[in-house]
Design a protein around this nucleic acid. Structure first.
Length: 199
DNA sequence: CCCGTGATTCTCT
DNA sequence: GAGAATCACGGGC
């Protein structure tokens, strides 16, 4: 891993996550400047896929830092995370949103109905715009066409509860750049049990 | 608000 | 192995 990327991912995940704001994730022609992320602290974190130990799906998170952990959910969406921390800690940072800073024409073709600010607004949209799917699970982030590069340190960082989690909603482990139009809209986890209609 | 959609994992046999 | 619950979401109304 090159020293720049090592420095970016070094340390506890709660330090790494806000540090990733302003960094640029590139996949081929398209590059996204990250504006919103969430920290997941492996086995210590009830919200993490790694909370119940190693499984086939989450195995990449238990490996070395600097790789992508991609998963498929809701039968149609991909989400991607940057694995960080020492090997075995299974900590990772979910990439929730960003601003397209290169390859805008390609990005628009991938999401024809999106306004520009929505192209990577939300974790599944970010994956679609960058053309990331399960085939990129475990991919290194220092080998073109897939690279992650630091940006200038953010002037200000906001934080709050993570999106869509029932568990551990007391932890303010979502981080974003304030005043950014590309930050995804907050949706709390449905607290009410699903009701059947009719009957 | 509602709901599609299918992999993953857990909990029984 | 089968059945069921869950799910770090997005789009449409």
């Amino acid at each position: 891993m090159p020293p720049e990327l090592r420095a970016l991912l070094e340390g506890p995940v709660l330090e790494v996550a806000p540090r990733l704001l302003g960094a640029t994730l590139r996949h081929g022609d398209v590059a996204v400047r990250l504006t919103e992320v969430e920290a997941y602290d492996g086995a210590n974190d009830p919200g993490s896929h790694a909370h119940r130990g190693l499984t086939p799906r989450n195995s990449v998170m238990f490996g070395p830092a600097g790789h992508l952990y991609v998963y498929f959910t809701y039968g149609m969406h991909h989400c991607c995370n940057v694995v960080c921390g020492p090997e075995g800690t299974a900590s990772a940072v979910l990439l929730r949103a960003g601003e397209v800073v290169d390859g805008l024409e390609t990005a628009r073709q991938r999401r024809p109905r999106s306004r520009d600010r929505d192209l990577a607004r939300g974790p599944a949209r970010l994956c679609q715009t960058l053309d990331l799917d399960l085939g990129h699970n475990g991919a290194r982030l220092d080998v073109p066409p897939l690279t992650l590069e630091p940006g200038p340190a953010p002037e200000a960082v906001s934080s709050g509860p993570r999106v869509g989690l029932r568990l551990a909603s007391d932890r303010a482990w979502r981080f974003w750049l304030p005043e950014e139009p590309t930050v995804s809209q907050y949706r709390s986890a449905a607290p009410l049990p699903r009701r059947r209609t009719g009957r």
